Simulated scan of single mutants.
Amino acid sequence: MPSNGKKVAVISSGPAGLSFAADLAKAGYQVTIFEAFHVPGGVLMYGIPEVRLLKALVQIEIDAVKQLGVTIRTNMVIGTVLSLVDLTVEGYEGILIGSGAGLPSFMKIPGENLNGVYLLTNFWLVLTLMKAYSSQKRIAPSSRDYRRGRNGCK
């Protein structure tokens, strides 16, 4: 698709950001994704365990978005490294803020703030950043194990 000369910034490279960026690139927009983490993919890379979604498959999708001409800038915390005003000064005519699953939502139930109670998104984020998924030793049985009766599952 020929360029229409318009620049759009996408804040966050999660599912919404990647989809939005790909669609706009196909429509001729010059798109730049700004990702706070050092690897693009958002919740697809940091919030879903490897046993449920292979990181290599997510990377294939990210590479496909790049092939459309989308630029991805990592380690870009908008509000710290750049502001929304900075983006408009740089010529971005549109900005999508795809903050997604990064912010927790509390249930407001007794005990949710006790020691030892963790948000699942934070738990998976820490495990992913520590590359716990690459260990041969699994920390929890998968649904496949339940079906096959492995790891003490019945």
Rank of each mutant, 00 (worst) to 15 (best):
D86T: 07
Y133A: 13
N115L: 12
Y146P: 00
N151P: 01
V117G: 06
I62N: 01
E61S: 13
M1P: 09
A64D: 14
L119P: 02
S19W: 09
V58K: 01
D63H: 15
L57T: 10
G28N: 07
G111S: 12
G17C: 09
V31I: 06
V10L: 03
V43R: 03
A101G: 07
G5C: 06
V10N: 01
Y118W: 14
E90P: 02
K154E: 00
I48D: 08
P40G: 04
L18W: 06
I78S: 01
M76S: 15
L119G: 12
A27I: 01
E93C: 04
G149Y: 11
L84M: 11
L24K: 05
A9C: 08
A36F: 06
C153K: 14
H38T: 08
G116D: 11
T121W: 05
Y146C: 08
S135V: 01
R138V: 11
G69T: 06
F20I: 00
S19E: 10
G5Y: 07
V70M: 05
Y146T: 06
A56P: 01
W124Y: 14
G149D: 09
D145E: 15
G94R: 13
G111K: 12
A16N: 11
F123L: 13
A140T: 11
N115P: 14
A27L: 10
P40F: 04
I48Q: 07
T121C: 07
R138S: 11
I33T: 02
Y118A: 02
V77C: 06
R138M: 09
D86A: 08
Y46Q: 05
A9R: 02
